[in-house]
């Protein structure tokens, strides 16, 4: 039949798809294991001839090495290029990112799960108002929140404190979490709710003992979305953090970019480090992301 033609078409399309999606990242990874000399060759070496992990070592050892004007002028022997004075902040900043992301995830669940259950399963007065309210808050551009947040946070002395990031990230993640969860809860039968109630569950017990165990796929999706959003967020972190005490990974990595003396091999290694955790999470839990979104979107 037309099987062969279809296969050729699918194969070509798949190949184009993969090249588009993966080629830039592959090049990032490839250049992160090249030495300064190789990275500056023309035309570029697509596949490194002498792969090295020196760039990564430089990042993890940046703490021990003293970076001064002289060492920078001399060039760092480890990378054959310049490494920035902020390099030592990279690993701590990843810890900061992790702390912020985990806190946001936990608070998100505590806030979004009960709210989504109420919106999906309880017929209360004001239901549609609360749903519209929740959706419209997500429409506000992050940048419009920056000034009031900044003044607000300064008043409470939270500037340069991870707490300020946790609070503001809740604003941008909660509406989306609730949206996904409402869709999922709605797809579960109402009669389960009634059954649990006559079996002696209060509303909260119904949620915890019946709906939460059943909503695991979408809970995983919410955790992932929230984690990735917090881990990756840049704009607000740029405004509210000033010192390495609170700077998150995107801020430190971005600081490399504005320094023209830094070796690209080093920046690329940092880029790879920044990319690995979220990409691993996303690919491993791919199933949940798609199904979590599906339940929400189909209902919408």
């Amino acid at each position: 039949m037309k099987g062969l033609g279809r296969n050729v078409l699918l194969f070509t399309a798949s190949a184009l798809f993969l090249v588009y999606v993966l080629a830039p990242v592959a090049w990032l990874v490839s250049s992160s294991v090249q030495q300064e000399a190789e990275i500056t060759s023309r035309p570029p070496h697509w596949i490194p001839r002498q792969p090295t992990l020196e760039n990564f070592e430089a990042i993890f050892q940046a703490k021990e090495k003293k970076v001064t004007y002289e060492t920078r002028r001399a060039g760092d022997p480890a990378t054959g290029g310049y490494i920035p004075s902020t390099a030592r902040d990279l690993v701590p900043s990843m810890w900061n990112s992790l702390i912020v992301a985990v806190s946001v995830v936990v608070l998100n669940l505590l806030v979004a799960v009960p709210a989504a259950y109420a919106m999906a399963k309880i017929r209360y007065i004001g239901r549609s108002t609360s749903i519209y309210f929740m959706l419209t808050t997500r429409v506000i551009p992050d940048i419009a929140l920056v000034v009031p947040f900044f003044l607000f946070i300064r008043t409470f002395g939270l500037l340069d404190h991870l707490g300020s990031l946790v609070i503001t990230y809740l604003a941008i993640t909660i509406p989306f979490s609730v949206f996904i969860l409402v869709g999922y809860f709605e797809s579960l039968p109402d009669e389960l709710d009634k059954a649990a109630r006559v079996d002696g569950c209060s509303r909260l017990q119904t949620l915890l003992r019946v709906y939460v165990p059943l909503a695991m796929p979408s809970l995983v999706a919410v955790v992932l979305f929230t984690f990735l959003t917090s881990w990756n967020e840049f704009l607000l972190a740029l405004m509210f953090t000033q010192t390495p005490a609170s700077q998150t990974m995107p801020i430190v990595v971005a600081s490399f970019a504005s320094d023209f003396t830094i070796s690209f091999s080093f920046i690329n290694a940092a880029g790879v480090l920044a990319v690995v955790p979220p990409v691993l999470m996303a690919v491993v839990f791919e199933r949940y992301i798609v199904s979590g979104l599906t339940a929400g979107a189909v209902k919408g």
Binding site: L28, F256, P278
Partner: peptide, 16 residues
């Protein structure tokens, strides 16, 4: 694989 670009932080995307 489609999720790779989605998961990458915008900062890393910019540097790349």
């Amino acid at each position: 694989m489609l999720l790779v670009p989605w998961a990458i932080p915008y900062v890393a995307n910019g540097l790349m």
